[in-house]
Simulated assay, not measured.
Amino acid sequence: MAHTLLQEKFNKNLDNSLIKEIETIGKLVTYKKNDIIIDINQTLKHIPLLLSGNIKILREDQDGNELLIYFLEAGETCTMSLTCCMGTSKSKIRAVAEKDSTLIMIPVQNMQKWFHENASWRNFILESYQTRFDEMLEAIDNLAFIKMDERLIKYLINKTKLHSSKTIIVKHQDIAEDLHTSRVVISRLLKQLENQNKIKLSRNKIEVL
């Protein structure tokens, strides 16, 4: 399974010899929905390549409140974990499985070695940094300039793309935590969106129209 998924998700970015090496040294792991894959202050000895599923990357404030930074999709890696590995520091993020996910974990020393010796890996990492940087700028813009109702509908649309479905199974509290606000605010805004015929609400389900 690992070979098929690696070829399918990474052959556009990584050369065949590197994919074979990843198959040899990588550790295949699976996580269930809501499992913590990487936690804050964890010492990282491996970096993840996501083969299937989705992962959300979160930051935490001093009061323990979480803020969604970005999502990972199959064929991507977490550049914030790469940064920690390169600097031999502890993780500053929490990575949580958005749904059942399969990853292959790469030892840190291989990641560093390939960066200097393999052009396809180096380009993949640099492109990943650029993508995540753009997404974090967008997250900052959302917090600074976009009203909560606009953030909410954008969040819902992104969810439909991640899950390839117009119907999202999610609790109001989970949305509130991702958007760093209260459940009451989210419930009120969802009702407003439903009245505007932009969504349809049912128990723990939201259909984006």
Rank of each mutant, 00 (worst) to 15 (best):
A2V: 11
T4R: 13
T4L: 13
T4E: 13
T4M: 09
L5Q: 10
L6D: 04
Q7M: 09
Q7G: 13
K9L: 01
K9S: 01
F10H: 04
N11A: 15
N13R: 06
L14S: 01
D15F: 10
D15G: 02
N16P: 00
N16E: 09
L18Q: 01
K20E: 14
E23I: 04
L28W: 06
V29H: 09
K32I: 02
D35I: 02
I36R: 13
I37V: 04
I38Q: 08
Q42G: 06
H46V: 08
H46R: 14
I47Q: 06
L49Q: 05
L49P: 03
L51N: 08
G53D: 03
G53H: 02
N54L: 00
E60T: 15
D61V: 11
Q62E: 10
G64D: 03
N65W: 00
L67T: 12
F71Y: 12
L72Y: 02
E73A: 10
E73H: 13
G75F: 03
G75I: 01
G75T: 01
T77N: 01
M80F: 05
L82V: 10
C84H: 08
C85P: 02
M86L: 14
M86T: 07
T88S: 15
I93R: 05
I93K: 07
I93W: 05
V96T: 13
T102G: 07
L103F: 12
M105W: 03
I106K: 02
I106E: 01
V108N: 11
Q109S: 12
Q109N: 13
R122E: 07
R122K: 15
N123P: 00
N123T: 11
I125S: 07
I125F: 13
I125N: 06
Y129M: 09
Y129H: 07
Q130V: 09
F133V: 03
E135M: 14
M136P: 00
M136S: 12
L137V: 11
A139L: 08
N142E: 09
N142Y: 11
F145A: 07
I146R: 14
E150M: 07
L152P: 03
L156H: 08
L156W: 03
I157N: 09
K159H: 01
K159M: 04
K159C: 07
H163V: 12
S164W: 04
T167V: 14
T167C: 00
I168Y: 07
I169T: 13
I169F: 14
V170W: 07
K171M: 13
H172W: 09
Q173N: 12
D174Q: 15
I175A: 05
E177A: 10
L179F: 10
T181K: 05
L189P: 11
K191C: 05
K200L: 12
L201S: 08
R203N: 10
K205C: 08
I206A: 11
E207A: 08
E207N: 12
V208E: 09
L209E: 08
